[in-house]
Design a protein around this nucleic acid. Structure first.
Lengths: 149, 149
DNA sequence: CTAAATGCAAAACGTTTGCATATAG
DNA sequence: CTATATGCAAACGTTTTGCATTTAG
């Protein structure tokens, strides 16, 4: 935890950005909710619990900054809201998601399943892949079981 | 063209929706722009050319309806706008996209490259896949060449 | 004839911006 | 000390909604 913050601090400083208390508080919230997919508003409310003076605009600005630094990935599951997902340490690519159409739960998949597909894309379409977004929509294990009751 | 409209008409009627002139005009625009990724506003302006009396709200309502019927897929490439993409006839799954981060172009990939991956998801995660979204971000052939000038 | 659909304008929503003030480095 | 960041409120662009009117079936 602390060393991840240290690392982000260095990343910020290397581009003459400052690590303000607000930014640190925001990063802490993201670290404490690594598995979640928080919207800007969600982050705002959580940060506000410990740092009530923070403004929503600052949260938006911080999230955008963290996106630039590739600390965070911005995703959109189709509801009108952007969500922010912390990149795992050392992850080259964005991880995948399983979205349950029954209960709305979102499960993360860390393994990179797209190696072969990316090779195909690069050779067959001559497209130089930098990153990807892969989301499956379907029915999660739990809802499959509930359906059989 | 005409038989696709006929087919959509039947789908609508089967759920006691009506095929109004506005809806037909909207579908025609989508059919004429199968390869594009139009926003609601784009569709609105194109429909307006031939049916100037149409309202933006109607276009939104129609697109939402067509989404429900799986005639169209709603996607979001990260700019703040929803885009609407006609499903190819008989396509079980949504097709993939290559988004160029240089020029913003969007290329469609019709082939389903995810067969193996879906099997893995189903067996290993016990997640019943209904559909997917796959987008690659990178540099298109054209921009690669321009970069080497 | 009547349930469903439309057009319009107003409202709602998430997000961004301008600006005067505060602060990290 | 100064460039960078903040909070607030106002502005923005997209999407949704309420309502009186029209229309497809």
């Amino acid at each position: 935890m602390e060393n991840r913050i240290e690392k982000i601090k260095k990343q910020l400083h290397s581009q003459s950005y400052k690590l303000t208390p607000q930014r640190e508080a925001t990063v802490r919230v993201l670290l404490e909710h690594e598995e979640d997919h928080l919207s800007a508003e969600d982050v705002y409310l959580l940060v506000k619990e410990k740092s009530p003076e923070i403004g929503l605009a600052t949260v938006y600005r911080t999230l955008e900054l963290l996106s630039e630094l590739k600390v965070v990935d911005k995703i959109n599951f189709g509801d009108g809201v952007s969500r922010y997902d912390l990149r795992k340490e050392g992850a080259e690519h964005f991880h995948h998601h399983l979205v349950c159409v029954e209960c709305g739960s979102v499960q993360e998949i860390e393994e990179d399943l797209l190696g072969d597909v990316e090779e195909t894309i690069e050779s067959q379409w001559e497209f130089q892949v930098k990153d990807h977004r892969l989301t499956f929509h379907g029915i999660c294990k739990q809802c499959q079981n509930n359906g059989n009751e």
